[in-house]
Simulated assay, not measured.
Amino acid sequence: MPGIITVGLDGTDHSLAAADWAAAEAVRRGARLRLVHAWIWRPLDVPVAADEAVQRRWAAEVLREAADRVTAGFPGLSVTREILAAETVPALLSAAAAADLLVLGSRGHGTLLGYLLGSVGLQVLRQTGTPVVLVRSPRPDAAEQPRDEVVVGVQDALESDPVLAFAFAAAAAQGVGLRAVRAWNIPPVLVWGGEAMRAADDAGGLEPLERKRLADAVRPWRERFPQVKVVEHVEMGGAGQVLLAGSARARLLVVGRRSPGRHDLRRIGAVAHAALHHAPCPVAVVPHA
């Protein structure tokens, strides 16, 4: 059964860019595309806006515009559209739970993460257990930059499995190479115990140890996706900084985020935070297992 890629639309250029990206990805995956717009009638003081029929027609037009756009570009694509009669965040969370991937528009570069994504996108990103891709409208200089890699950040080997699975599948579907990036720093003395020292000695030093850890994490996915050319990139520095520096040719940047819990709904992680602020390409945020 084909998968489902869902796009949350709000009528902005950024959400139309998200629909374009999602349509191309659906074609690559052989998936169905679902276009959704959350709307409930809210009587307002402005007379014309208080008319329920007017508001409903506007909501339907948001979906129609996006559907016409993607079907013109991808005539064979299976596309459905739906008005979700609920508040926006709960509606998108429910839609994400029924999809393999949720795609949202991002407002672009900003100084605050809430401004960058918008409050709706940020709340959804914090709470959903489904991978989310954030897409912004292309920048004027985007065509000048070669984009021929999927770039993925790899830290903890076990937690990175869902992230690597997503990244390798994306690279295979897009027919591009994959760059696996791992950042490292000299560990604090208090956590640098005998076992860690022995592991570093056996590997020939700290950097070779980090290279081994990255190679070990990537190896099973190399075997599952032999058609994907892989570059392993290890560099000393902050994880967000190293990841962004290694993303110059990224057409998609993939980062992990711990699954939401009762006490961490406000957090998405420093690396995801940096990627969403500064990456010049779509960013996929994948919950860890």
Results as ranks from 00 to 15, higher is better:
residue 28 R to I: 01
residue 58 W to H: 10
residue 39 W to T: 04
residue 70 V to W: 08
residue 74 F to I: 04
residue 41 W to Q: 05
residue 20 D to G: 10
residue 30 G to C: 06
residue 39 W to F: 10
residue 62 V to H: 03
residue 13 D to N: 14
residue 8 G to Y: 01
residue 13 D to R: 13
residue 48 V to N: 07
residue 44 L to G: 07
residue 57 R to C: 08
residue 60 A to E: 15
residue 37 H to M: 10
residue 71 T to Y: 08
residue 55 Q to H: 07
residue 43 P to Q: 05
residue 9 L to N: 01
residue 43 P to D: 07
residue 45 D to E: 12
residue 25 E to N: 05
residue 31 A to L: 00
residue 41 W to P: 06
residue 25 E to W: 07
residue 33 L to N: 03
residue 58 W to R: 06
residue 68 D to R: 00
residue 31 A to Q: 01
residue 58 W to E: 09
residue 54 V to Y: 15
residue 34 R to H: 14
residue 23 A to K: 08
residue 6 T to V: 14
residue 68 D to K: 05
residue 9 L to Y: 04
residue 36 V to E: 01
residue 57 R to Q: 15
residue 40 I to V: 06
residue 3 G to L: 08
residue 52 E to Y: 03
residue 68 D to G: 11
residue 54 V to F: 15
residue 18 A to E: 08
residue 72 A to M: 09
residue 9 L to E: 06
residue 27 V to N: 03
residue 57 R to I: 11
residue 10 D to Q: 13
residue 75 P to C: 02
residue 24 A to V: 06
residue 31 A to V: 03
residue 3 G to S: 06
residue 20 D to F: 08
residue 37 H to K: 05
residue 55 Q to D: 00
residue 28 R to E: 02
residue 36 V to C: 06
residue 30 G to W: 04
residue 21 W to S: 06
residue 27 V to C: 08
residue 11 G to C: 11
residue 77 L to P: 00
residue 4 I to W: 03
residue 71 T to S: 15
residue 30 G to N: 05
residue 41 W to Y: 14
residue 26 A to H: 05
residue 76 G to R: 09
residue 49 A to K: 11
residue 19 A to F: 04
residue 8 G to S: 01
residue 36 V to Q: 02
residue 32 R to S: 10
residue 25 E to A: 12
residue 34 R to A: 12
residue 12 T to R: 09
residue 18 A to S: 13
residue 68 D to N: 02
residue 68 D to Q: 04
residue 42 R to P: 10
residue 26 A to W: 04
residue 38 A to E: 01
residue 72 A to E: 12
residue 38 A to K: 07
residue 41 W to M: 01
residue 24 A to K: 02
residue 19 A to V: 02
residue 16 L to R: 10
residue 62 V to Q: 04
residue 43 P to Y: 03
residue 53 A to D: 15
residue 41 W to H: 14
residue 67 A to R: 08
residue 13 D to W: 05
residue 51 D to K: 14
residue 51 D to T: 11
residue 58 W to L: 01
residue 15 S to A: 13
residue 12 T to Y: 11
residue 62 V to Y: 01
residue 4 I to Q: 06
residue 6 T to G: 00
residue 52 E to M: 11
residue 31 A to R: 00
residue 51 D to C: 09
residue 8 G to M: 02
residue 50 A to C: 11
residue 69 R to W: 12
residue 47 P to C: 15
residue 49 A to P: 09
residue 29 R to V: 00
residue 28 R to Y: 01
residue 75 P to K: 02
residue 50 A to V: 13
residue 71 T to Q: 13
residue 76 G to N: 14
residue 66 A to V: 11
residue 49 A to C: 09
residue 33 L to V: 07
residue 49 A to L: 15
residue 74 F to V: 00
residue 27 V to I: 14
residue 31 A to W: 03
residue 43 P to F: 05
residue 56 R to W: 00
residue 40 I to L: 14
residue 41 W to F: 14
residue 35 L to M: 06
residue 74 F to H: 13
residue 37 H to G: 07
residue 28 R to Q: 09
residue 12 T to F: 12
residue 26 A to E: 02
residue 75 P to W: 00
residue 36 V to S: 03
